[in-house]
Nucleic acid binder design. Structure first.
Lengths: 341, 341
DNA sequence: CCAGATGAGTAGAACGTTCTACTAATGATG
DNA sequence: CATCATTAGTAGAACGTTCTACTCATCTGG
């Protein structure tokens, strides 16, 4: 109640004095070392409570040459996929003493090195990174070589030897396509995403694969690339709808694109889910709010974050262990955007 | 290229040796102190580059009794409003050496004290907090009294004397209501949000105010409260639609509720934007993706974060300055959910 | 009764900075 | 030429922990 704010921070030494022991003993108590008798432990804990002691983790970190902070580098927190992944990271860290330093790159590589530098200065015990677009594998490997436990997420560096967790994009493409084929569609477009983006390459590969398996020819005219913005999605859609033989269904590169496609359809007087089928890829909760509710392939953003956190934690414990490669299996969430049958 | 990873971290002392100066001098160079001659400065900077020195901010923080980390306590990062606010905080911190420790409370008060404790242990130079539901003003005041620069966001503590930035909820309610009145609606519902939530109280007050100014009677039956979930929104809607004299328009407590209301309308065979008008409150980007695109009152989440960061930064510089109270003026974004006229 | 093992705790040097109070050298002033 | 400023840099004690290598007791077995 009426505690007086101490002028000087209360330290382990104050506790030691109050409890009549040495600072070393207090430290051992804090670490729950069992070498200390129950009696002394109680005395120390009593003093801790009484003096309102607060553990100074940065002093400990300095001494131990570690840090109980995890750096989390992502593209953009406003993107629901990354927001969910971030929540997953927090979940994976729950119950530990780790806290996350969140930084955004805006997918700019120079900004990425700046923020990484800043993380290093602040001191991090581990790093989870969604690498910005043109990130060189060496950048990631140098971090790992420098001794920082690192886990790369979502964007697989071509062959950097680091822990990784991400989705099976090819399978995601296949699942989306197969679903549409099973619904009876023959002309299926794949819209949005940049041609050079590895995840798009994989998704498109899966799309082609599913087409092929169904004995369905791949038509390059139905596969159009663009930066995944709303406006681009709509113009991509118009492109394929103006074809002599237009598609009856489309896969959006991601949920955002897919939702924009539904808007674009309506502008052309086509009702999504009735006259045209749309499926997205991502599976963030925004897909559920769309109208019609978006059928999508879930990439498990939350789980990705959770696993990434676990991998980093494991590597902090055992820096020498062999690198893990966690590929999350996507799965289809059927809602209303391909019709209800 | 072929740098050898140093076994021991390279410190200010190594630099001092390499440059033939004292550690103090190196420190002064790092701080850009002008007492050091250009010549020595160059020698030191040369050595820094050569040895690949990395500044250890936690050692500095320990010595200086500060921290260059800002704690950011929010409810849930997956909520687009908080995601945008978080991005705003990052924006406000840009160009400084501060990094943000992001933590979520899930709106649980015990979790809030746990994470705050953890932030304290890790060491923070300032705190931005969206207080969990039942937070007592004393909790916030105690933090401020403890010397931590704090800025409260969105949820105004009844009368805690701390920096604050948040929206004018009453005005938001008034704006939404006035818009509907101007469109000719007379029976307007206010749906969702918990009765005891201060922001709902204010929004409803604004709603009543606008009604009154228009000479329009307030009908308690049209104002229904519930936890702002999708399912609740829909059942709230059904409640008012089943009234003998049903409304022709509704204000959702927030965008999420409003979007759910549109789904609910369609289940009743009513087309939002044509047979019934909906307006939301929040103005996050998800409102734009909804169909029909949601007319909403923007509460400026990004700006809130940015201003909060600025306030904290200012208070770090001048701990004694008088507390600021920044109230952001909401504004209407007209889209399609109230019809296009 | 002694050697050694075990138990409970401590001294004190780190960790990498910063910062106050110094010093030594040079320059200006009367 | 003594005195005082100014300039450019330094010594060394902090900051709050941790952890290795001790020190005493007390216990155990032969």
């Amino acid at each position: 109640m009426n505690e007086i704010a101490p002028l000087r921070r209360v330290t382990i030494i104050d506790i030691a004095k109050a409890a009549g022991v040495s600072p070393s003993t207090v430290s051992l108590v804090l670490q729950k070392n069992e070498r200390i008798s129950a009696e002394t432990r109680n005395r120390v804990e009593e003093a801790i409570r009484k003096l309102g002691y607060k553990y100074n983790r940065s002093a400990a970190n300095l001494r131990r040459q570690t840090s109980q902070a995890i750096g989390l580098i992502i593209n953009d927190i406003c993107n629901p996929f990354f927001a969910e992944m971030t929540a997953g990271v927090q979940k994976g860290l729950e119950g530990t003493e780790f806290l996350v330093f969140l930084v955004e790159t805006g997918d700019e590589i120079e900004r990425q090195s700046r923020v990484y530098q800043s993380l290093e200065e602040h001191g991090i015990g581990g790093l989870i990174i969604f690498p910005a677009s043109q990130t060189k594998p060496e950048f990631l490997e140098r971090i790992a070589a420098g001794g920082t436990p690192i886990c790369v997420a979502i964007r697989r560096p071509p062959d950097a030897d680091v822990d990784y967790v991400g989705p099976d994009n090819r399978l995601a493409g296949r699942i989306a396509t197969r679903h549409l084929i099973e619904l009876g569609h023959r002309r299926i477009a794949f819209l949005g995403g940049e041609a050079k983006s590895p995840s798009r390459i994989d998704r498109v590969a899966g799309y082609q694969e599913a087409l092929q398996r169904a004995g369905n020819a791949f038509d390059p005219a139905l596969c159009v690339e663009s930066r995944p913005t709303r406006a681009n999605a709509i113009s991509d859609l118009n492109k394929v709808l103006d074809l002599p033989e237009p598609p009856t269904a489309a896969i959006g590169y991601n949920d955002n694109v897919a939702i924009a496609l539904m808007h674009g359809l309506r502008r052309r007087g086509l009702e999504p889910g009735r006259q045209f089928a749309i499926v997205g890829i991502d599976g963030t909760s925004e897909a559920e709010l769309a109208y019609p509710a978006l059928t999508t392939v879930a990439l498990h953003a939350h789980e990705t974050g959770r696993r990434a956190a676990e991998l980093v934690l494991e590597r902090i414990k055992a820096p020498g262990k062999t690198h893990e490669n966690v590929i999350l299996r996507p799965n289809l969430i059927v809602r209303a955007s391909c019709g209800t049958r």
